[in-house]
Every structure is written in structure tokens, then in C-alpha cells.
């Protein structure tokens, strides 16, 4: 099948490759780049497990063709903070137990981070509205909302990504 060239900046690195036009962004990220932190859940655009950021906006990567990302910047969970560190949103999910199985977590974190750039001090209703496209079947959402709230507080205090090892 014919392929087309595509250039996408992924986690700060420009990647040029050939894809079939029908290749969904999530498969490009996982299968061609090995960025398996982006999960595949429902594949119908409902669950949000495949959420990444496209030019800083949370989007579902199973609902975007790779060719549509041509010339744009994608951030996956691997690129949210420098290697070996946790972004304050990730740290807050850890501390507040904002996950159990972890399947929804990369998408949940990327949506939460996008929200906090728009609205650094969201109330619970705003947080719940923001994550309505990210399904979690473990937590009942309460600890997720709490994690986002704690992340907002930490970031308002100037929290920066911190080394993962210090946390163990």
C-alpha cells in the first residue's frame, strides 16, 4: 500500500517517517516510535486511554490520523517531564493514589496537565468536566480529582519535575 511522508515533532524531537495514510496517530506512536505509554483502550474515541497532547491540547490519538499531525507537536506521557523525573501532576497522582491499575493514568495525567495550564486553580466541578473524556474503572474518580487538586496546589507553589528515585 502506498505510503506518504510525514514529519511530526514528538516529545521535542522531529520525526520524519513514511506511513500509510490510514495509520492512526496512536499506532505511529506505539508501533513505530515504541512510545507504549500511550495506551489503547476502546479504539472508538470514548475512553481516553490514548490521550496525548497535540500542540498542547489533550486529544485522543485513536481519533487522529498521523498525517493530520504533519507539522505539529505531540507530547506523550514519556515526554511530559525529563527522563527519570516525575512531573508535579505525576507526583500528585502517586501521592494521592490517583490510580489503581494504571491503564487510564497516562491519558488522565496529560488531560489534567492541559487543564492546569488553562486554569491553574480549578474547582472540583471543573476538574470533573475536564476529565469526562477519560474513563477510569478503578478509582471512582474521587482520588483522581484529589490528585489534580493537589497538583494544582503544588504547581502554584512552583513545583518542578523531581527525580523519581528520591521518592522511593
Amino acid at each position: 500500500m502506498a505510503t506518504v511522508p510525514v514529519t511530526v515533532t514528538v516529545n521535542g524531537t522531529e520525526r520524519t517517517t513514511e506511513v500509510e495514510p490510514r495509520t492512526l496517530l496512536v499506532y505511529f506512536l506505539r508501533d513505530q516510535l515504541g512510545l507504549t505509554g500511550t495506551h489503547i483502550g476502546c479504539q472508538t474515541g470514548q475512553c481516553g486511554a490514548c490521550t496525548v497532547q497535540l500542540d498542547g491540547e489533550a486529544v485522543k490519538s485513536c481519533m487522529v490520523l498521523t498525517v493530520q499531525a504533519e507539522g505539529h507537536a505531540v507530547t506523550t506521557i514519556e515526554g511530559l517531564a525529563p527522563a527519570g523525573t516525575l512531573h508535579p501532576v505525576q507526583a500528585a497522582f502517586w501521592e494521592e493514589h490517583g490510580l489503581q491499575c494504571g491503564y487510564c493514568t497516562p491519558g488522565m495525567v496529560l488531560t489534567a496537565e492541559a487543564l492546569l495550564r488553562d486554569d491553574p486553580d480549578p474547582d472540583d466541578h471543573t476538574i470533573r468536566h475536564a476529565i469526562e473524556g477519560n474513563l477510569c474503572r478503578c478509582t471512582g474518580y474521587q482520588s483522581v480529582v484529589q490528585s489534580v487538586r493537589v497538583a494544582a496546589t503544588r504547581m502554584a507553589e512552583g513545583a518542578q519535575p523531581e527525580p523519581l528515585l528520591r521518592r522511593s
Partner: peptide, 9 residues
């Protein structure tokens, strides 16, 4: 409409 991610696209 949809959810935050859908509204972005």
C-alpha cells in the same frame, strides 16, 4: 459536545 479532547479537534 463530547468531551474535552473531542472539543479540541
Amino acid at each position: 459536545v463530547g468531551d474535552r479532547q473531542v472539543r479540541a479537534r
